[in-house]
Design a protein around this nucleic acid. Structure first.
Lengths: 275, 275
DNA sequence: ATGCCTTACGTTATACGTAATTATT
DNA sequence: AATAATTACGTATAACGTAAGGCAT
């Protein structure tokens, strides 16, 4: 059985030209290298060198042996790299989600329940999410519409609730809940990047939204005015507490978005440890 | 640097199912095999086994590792076989010839002058001989016509001389040489398989040849009759001495065939050590 | 209780470095 | 003289076997 280190040594000799130079490069004494190559020749049963008293040069067979050695070491390195990649892939939980908010909770839960696993998260549209789950690219996906498809398991994971935040002196602040009917004609501050919520806001007729791109600017506006602002249970950007405001859930169905956790049936155990 | 023996061990474990069984097959103690696999796991940096207290089974990564190990060992075996084949090829002197007779001398000379070399001989027509020499299949060829071609060296190697063998009481037996003119009307015994000579016999008009396929039958005929028989210097089949006959060279040019030794110019040294 | 794997420990084999030898430039 | 390879010899490292321990079937 050929020793790969000896092949490495053979290659180094070919590169350096002499045993001595190669030995120095390999941090080996020349005697050790000499004997190592003698063993290699004996193992292979072919004359790799033309041995003179003062010089050992590669024979034609040795030259070809070097080529083979390079090829073999390359494939060996290739295979070990492949295997390490495969191992990394197996130990990674690939998670896709249509919104960042529910990921925050899921991510911490995954690290708790699967210690040692690498959790990789991606934000993606619903279509690619489902396709990725089918193909095995994702192990878990978080969607805001339920998936009903053979081979795919799907369970409600969390529900996000839209909140109206008000200064204490606002007429509605005494209420426990508000409805869209209560909000007719109101002007409401909100963050622009609300992800899945954005489309819902467009459907809330009769409410005038002032959208802000910058969270700091939004925070300043909230503090310096009496205008109500939007928040959600999962996405409390500037917290109501910080602004000295009260948070009221909006009772309408439209103000609630459920998130669903989906996995392949073969990964049923995964889902069961989370829901 | 991965150790191929460890890969072999990994494969054996995959085949036998348990460390113990594999260890027995490998003529190793199970403890040695256990530690060897621990070293392999450390070297690769991936979990090849699911280690329970009582059982070490291959992990999914290990399964794939076995596949890679098989591939790598195969390529290693392939390369060593290739290298040995190449070495054998380099140490072989491939000789082609158009007739066996001059080969007898060449063969012994090659073994003398190139000890350790394997001499492989082939009989072949002139066309394939030359083509084989060009392509590098033959290192040397023996032809009965000179080759004049760039890149090819050609020298006269030996000359075969046709002999007429006669019983002592034959009228011609007192002569030193004979000519075809002397032989007009003679009936002459000869061997059928005379190779390059055969075509010449057809051109010797006025001589009647009785060809024999079997050398023993020919020998019997020669001994029991007074008919002359043919021989050649290189191809003394039944020796004249054995039959109590005298050998006379036939003086005509037609009764002499020169043999030429050819090699590629890059093998000039080869030719120089023979001619 | 038996089979299987791992750890501990003493031993052996294999590879290594230093030094001496020989040959070449 | 300097460089280069091999051989000889003592040493160190690394793998091995035996034995003991723990766990599961």
């Amino acid at each position: 059985m050929v020793d790969l280190r000896q092949l490495e040594q053979l290659i180094m000799i070919a590169e350096k030209g002499t045993l001595s130079a190669a030995a120095a490069e390999l941090h080996l004494s020349q005697s050790a290298l000499s004997r190592s190559m003698q063993r290699l020749e004996a193992e292979m049963g072919v004359p790799l060198f033309t041995h003179s008293k003062n010089r050992s040069a590669l024979s034609p067979v040795g030259e070809r042996g070097v080529e083979y050695a390079r090829l073999l070491l390359n494939t060996a390195a290739h295979y070990t790299a492949e295997l390490r990649l495969y191992a990394a892939q197996l130990s990674t939980l690939m998670v896709g989600a249509s919104a960042p908010a529910p990921l925050w909770r899921l991510s911490t839960e995954l690290h708790e329940r699967f210690p040692g696993k690498t959790v990789a998260e991606e934000l993606q549209e619903a279509g690619p999410l489902l396709e990725g789950l089918r193909r095995g690219y994702y192990s878990l996906i978080l969607t805001h519409t339920p998936v009903e498809e053979p081979g795919i398991l799907c369970r409600k994971y969390v529900e996000d609730q839209l909140l109206l935040e008000l200064p204490a002196r606002h007429p509605l602040s005494a209420r426990d809940v508000v409805t869209l009917a209560d909000m007719q004609g109101l002007t409401v501050l909100t963050y622009r990047n609300l992800g899945v919520w954005s489309e819902r806001l467009g459907q809330m007729t009769g409410v005038h939204f002032i959208e802000q791109t910058d969270l700091d600017v939004l925070s300043d506006l909230v503090m310096s005015s009496d205008l109500p602002n939007l928040a959600s249970e999962l996405f409390h950007t500037p917290t109501a507490r910080f602004h000295g405001r009260v948070s009221l859930p909006i009772a309408d169905d439209m103000a609630r978005i459920p998130f669903y956790l989906c996995a392949r049936e073969s990964d049923r155990a995964l889902l069961q440890r989370l829901c």
